[in-house]
Amino acid sequence: MTIALSGTVAAGLEPVADAFAAAFEGRPAMGGALHVVVDGESVINLWAGTADARTGRAWTERTPSVVFSCTKGLVSILAARLVQEGRLDYQAPVARYWPEFAAAGKDKVTVGQALAHQAGLSAPRIDLTEDDIVDWHRVVAALAAQEPLWPLGSGYAYHALTHGWVAGEIIRRVTGQSVGRYFRDLIASPLGVDAWIGLPDDKADEVAHLQISPPLSALWAEEAAKSAPNWPYKAMTLGKALPADLVSEDGGFNKQRIRAAEIPGAGGITTAEALATIWSATVVPTRGVRLIDDATVAQATQTQSEGAPVFGGEPPYSRWGYGFQLDSAARRYLGDGNFGHDGAGGQVGFADPVRRIGFGFVTNWMMGPEDQRATQIIDALRPLV
């Protein structure tokens, strides 16, 4: 059965709509949306499927969803803006802004290293609980006190959740605002988009309900069975705080208590329109807003981390700038110079400075390494723009 799409697509971009429709094949409980902005103007605005399979609620143009690690890209925009304004220096030690971070041998860790997953804090040494992770000060105090998991300068490992707290506390120390408040004031409100780091309670019933595909659950079950310490596994669970899948039927990021907390490594909630509009505003004026200038983009997207991480893993490997995920074999965008971030389960948001594009794809049907949905949509877009 062919999915019924809603929305609009500009003439000549119909193959992208076809690729979006194909993403739903064999996935009757899936919902999702796609938005593409070129030169500050929307050219694709599509949505389809089911926002909540428990009730049959349909996905609409205004349905927001958890975008997981796409949030790291949004937080990296905030950091880049502070660098542009001269308020933050990628080469400065984190401890210049956050003195407590110097503990346990981290006095020389730079802001850039922290953003590029090199700080040695990819997972907490102690087991955190749900009560811990909804308490901002408790988490950042634990990370500030922690000894790194590997020697500084010896490599990197993806800071799946901790990245957001480290970057967010740096931002809080510089601005005096929480990361969610700064995100609202600098990005969401000026652009007029539905996007939050810390979801208001009055929006809780609008958010898509997340579901896990069986292969993704099986993958994390294999990780759970490995001998401890399994730092990549703990990077996702934080010990006892979250399920490895990041969600359960009513827990993890399906729980409003978690969504309401500012968890900037994975807790951003946006529509596809918001994600694409934000990324567009990093490379071209969009709705009267330009978030970071060309020189800052060039600086922030210099490769900092690539290749095999310190705890191993199978290729292909991602490539990182100062918090931004760059085009690589692990995450193909439209070409060299593109930057953004994908998110657990299939979410993707990025910018293309040459084509002047902002892209956003979100879904509540979470898949694992076998997922080709966003890749096929991007492949369909590439020859048309």
Rank of each mutant, 00 (worst) to 15 (best):
L216I: 01
E370A: 09
S122C: 15
T237K: 11
P369V: 04
A22W: 07
T110G: 10
A208K: 03
G31Y: 02
T301E: 07
A167I: 07
H137L: 13
R172A: 12
V83N: 03
E25N: 14
T296E: 09
G288R: 07
L384M: 10
T50M: 13
E314Q: 11
T55P: 07
D135G: 07
L199T: 11
G49H: 04
L143W: 02
D135W: 03
V38L: 14
T271I: 07
L291Q: 04
P151N: 12
V37Y: 02
N230Y: 11
P200D: 11
A145P: 03
R355C: 01
S248N: 12
Q91P: 06
Y156R: 05
I3C: 04
P151I: 05
D127Y: 09
G368E: 02
D135P: 10
R87E: 14
V247A: 00
G176K: 09
A276W: 06
V207M: 03
L275F: 07
T286M: 10
K106M: 05
G32W: 01
T60P: 00
K72A: 00
L186I: 12
G335V: 09
G176F: 04
H163G: 00
A51E: 05
S305P: 12
M236H: 13
V362L: 09
T60E: 08
T286S: 10
R173C: 11
Y158Q: 04
A221R: 10
E306D: 14
G368M: 01
G368S: 05
R184F: 12
L115C: 02
E273M: 12
A221C: 11
L191R: 12
T296S: 13
W196H: 09
R332L: 12
T60F: 10
P148N: 07
V354A: 15
P190M: 11
P99R: 02
K226I: 06
D194W: 06
L152P: 00
P99S: 08
G86A: 10
T175Y: 08
S178D: 14
R96F: 02
L242T: 02
M236N: 13
W150H: 10
K106D: 04
V139D: 07
P309C: 11
D205E: 12
V247P: 00
S76T: 08
H209L: 15
T110K: 05
A144L: 02
F359K: 00
G105F: 01
G358I: 00
F339M: 11
G358W: 02
F311R: 01
Q299K: 14
T63R: 03
C70I: 00
A276K: 10
A281C: 08
P214L: 09
A19R: 06
L78V: 03
A274W: 06
W150L: 03
R54Q: 13
A48L: 05
K255R: 15
H159G: 05
R27W: 07
L210H: 09
P200A: 05
A235Q: 01
S280E: 00
V354H: 14
D185K: 12
L210Q: 13
A344T: 08
W320D: 00
G86T: 09
A260L: 12
S227A: 15
T71F: 08
S69P: 05
I212K: 04
G7W: 07
G337N: 03
P151S: 09
I212T: 08
L384D: 14
E41K: 15
H35S: 15
